[in-house]
Design a binder for these strands. Structure first.
Lengths: 260, 260
DNA sequence: AATCAGAACTCCTCTAGTCGAGTAGTCGCC
DNA sequence: GGCGACTACTCGACTAGAGGAGTTCTGATT
């Protein structure tokens, strides 16, 4: 733990706390402070730089907001170690996977050696919101079945998802029950005659809302993927909209684009 | 500007500055503080809540790190107004677009009514890094042509991109010149006989590095998309890797996934 | 040897101020 | 009318403290 940090540049007009953050950031990026390593304590940094506590805290705050460190009350500040990421391939909703009998999330997680679980399953019925109605080609009068749940890997939450389906299709079916059975929602839809053709996915990245940060136990400085997927049948009808929020450091998304 | 904020809850064990941030966040999310509106000044908030200046600043800092507000020195703190987003469709690299003679970025931006521009074009040649070599199926000995540039819309930077191509393919061609000509790199590759088949895209979201934040003039609390695209020819050869960093609030990415 | 109490160390919240610097409006002078 | 000085207001950086609460180590006691 004998990290060597440069001194401050009194000539520079860069604020002291930013200079300090620069030094630490540089040490992290060059591996002198490895993932999981302990960043010098506030007291140590105060002494080394000869500054007040609040100045040290500003520097540490900056690094934390950049997602480089996490502070643990009573223990110290540590360099973030990125958790193993899960790769979402573009063929993840292919029929051949669906027919093997498990939901996409379960299969993928087990294949990569993790223990998948799902909790907070809630099913309600409500009027369609404007956005969902538009995506499903419905009007505001139409009823919607709403299925929300949270996905975890090894007990660690990574994703929340809310599916919206026309009540006319899904109400009273197994889709409206907590356990949708082998292959999940999409397998049930196909059994019911809605042959799926393709999905449209729309991806945004942003900082999480407060509830999202809580639900996914996100460290400060972790953005989320906000993904909205619409499922289309072979006759061009939208039958499901799935709105998911994913911890950005648990996922890499992968897609294949045609060049022709 | 007669925003009404609740008082503090002395019973709560939630820190004062977080309670204040909650109030302001709630006002922003419910539109009582509209995008572009001025958040009450530090002095006003000090008086309203009866707290010290640093406490007010902690609350404002929190909102800023969540990407909800921007502070302007000497003017005030304002609710962030999201810039118009550009949607990247999954067919954006289809041959029919390429053959119309302009690069994908230019066409799309003009279609959505913006003025596209490209700057900071730099072309170098170097040894392949391990990651790029692997993606291109080369060894560390192979030379790589590196094309980096920055894309702007209406003078506002939105994306930086670095393309890596085997020097054996691209060196000495128009791809190694600042202006790659109509249709861009991909059109040149196809002219040279490399018929493109598909692209693999890999998407991560994270907080920007310092240089990225500077190059894209990102407001604090804005994550970036980090997208790595590999171009494959019809015979399965990787001919280009493009590493791009995009301001997350300038883009929505859209993809189509097969269900079969 | 095991356990418990305390000390030492960590980060967290908050106060009460100082000085600095950018912005914008007012008001008087030319 | 135009221009500059002044002033009030804004956020930015920093100091020097306080008490609190969670963690870890250590040493004494059983």
């Amino acid at each position: 733990m004998d990290l060597i940090l440069p001194g401050l540049d009194p000539e520079s007009d860069r604020p002291v706390f930013k200079q300090m953050a620069d030094h630490l950031r540089e040490a992290i990026e060059h591996g002198r402070l490895a993932p999981g390593a302990k960043v010098p304590s506030e007291a140590t940094l105060m002494a080394h730089y000869g500054v007040a506590r609040m100045t040290v805290r500003s520097a540490l705050q900056l690094l934390q907001s950049e997602g480089l460190t996490v502070a643990e009350h009573g223990r110290g500040v540590f360099v973030r170690s990125r958790p193993p990421v899960r790769r979402l391939a573009s063929d993840r909703f292919a029929r051949r996977h669906r027919q093997r009998g498990k939901a996409a999330f379960i299969v993928e997680t087990e294949e990569s050696g993790g223990k998948p679980s799902v909790d907070s399953i809630r099913i309600t019925e409500m009027d369609a919101s404007a956005d969902v109605a538009k995506r499903l080609g419905l009007t505001a009068q139409d009823k919607i079945l709403v299925r929300s749940r949270r996905y975890l890997i090894n007990g660690h939450p990574v994703e929340t998802a809310v599916s919206y389906l026309p009540a006319a299709i899904a109400s009273g079916t197994r889709i409206a029950e907590p356990d949708t059975g082998p292959g999940g929602i999409y397998a049930r839809l196909e059994e019911m005659g809605y042959r799926l053709d393709h999905f449209d996915e729309e991806i945004k990245a942003r900082m999480p809302l407060r509830e999202e940060a809580r639900a996914l136990k996100l460290a400060p400085g972790t953005p989320v993927f906000h993904l909205i997927r619409t499922a289309f049948t072979e006759d061009g009808r939208a039958v499901e909209v799935c709105d998911t929020v994913m911890s950005s450091d648990a996922y890499v998304l992968a897609y294949q684009l045609p060049a022709r």
